[in-house]
Design a protein around this nucleic acid. Structure first.
Ligand code: MN
Ligand code: MN
Ligand code: ZN
Ligand code: ZN
Lengths: 140, 140
DNA sequence: TGCTAATTGAGAATCATTATTATTTAATAC
DNA sequence: GTATTAAATAATAATGATTCTCAATTAGCA
């Protein structure tokens, strides 16, 4: 694990964006959170650190972080967005019952992506691979 | 190309659901439409055939068709849902600028899915593979 | 040809997200 | 350090895609 701050600060500088406590805190929160939280979850959790932050700022910040490419926004089937700081090529395993999301990574995926992106060609700007499977809690 | 009606009617019977003109028309429309239309697009296009249909019925019908597995709902990044009658394993190539969606299918994808679903194991209920790439119209 | 539960149509309600705007603040220059 | 200023934030209102409600209609069946 590395200090996420340095990377974020460098990218913000490069893009001419300000380094704010809100941006640092939300990015740090996501970088240490595997659960692909919703904006609402980020808001309620981040209030411990930044008690006066507003929902609007959370949405705006998440959108900014997605724009600069350090997180990914995933619209899921319950109508909400979930936020993922894992920017490597991977599979999101989504429980169709409770919308729990976990990452699955393997060599198979890496190889597939190399082959597929070459096959499709052109300027590909991203990808999203989801697999729907009941989580261990829900299958009981 | 085969008659989509027969398949749908048989599944509706199996599930104890009624065969209605609205369900037939919307399913037929999607089966003959590669463009992954939104609910709004389905609504405005289907009014030619069913002038008195309501938006609510379109939403409800699309949801029913997705429930019984004959179409797939894709929430995309503009906040809308798009509907796909291609239920085979494939990649949706989505233009991040105009949200145009086209299907990409290849042996690479089929083989990957066989391998990946075995790797992940358990009762997988579906999958979704998206690739973001500017469409030919937008890259000009 | 009726019966009945499912479906539809019309319109209201919901709710996640976005927009607005006054206030605050990070970054730069002095 | 202090002033300047454009960007960011907080509070709140607005939006809009989707869902809900319920009375009217209809598909499926006896
Ligand atoms: Mn993920
Ligand atoms: Mn498709
Ligand atoms: Zn679950
Ligand atoms: Zn395009």
């Amino acid at each position: 694990m590395h200090q996420p701050d340095e990377e974020l600060v460098s990218i913000l500088h490069k893009k001419g964006l300000k380094v704010t406590p809100q941006r640092l805190a939300i990015f740090r929160y996501l970088a240490n959170n595997e659960s692909h939280p919703s904006a609402e979850k980020v808001y309620s959790d981040i209030k411990g650190e930044l008690p006066t932050i507003s929902q609007g700022t959370v949405y705006k910040t998440l959108s900014t972080l997605a724009d600069i490419g350090v997180i990914t926004e995933l619209k899921i089937n319950n109508g909400q967005s979930r936020y993922d700081s894992n920017t490597s090529v991977h599979v999101n395993v989504i429980c169709p019952r409770c919308n729990n999301i976990t990452d699955y990574q393997s060599e198979t995926i890496i190889k597939f992506w190399k082959k597929l992106s070459k096959e499709i060609g052109g300027k590909i700007s991203g990808q999203r691979f989801d697999v729907y499977k009941e989580c261990s809690t829900c299958e009981k």
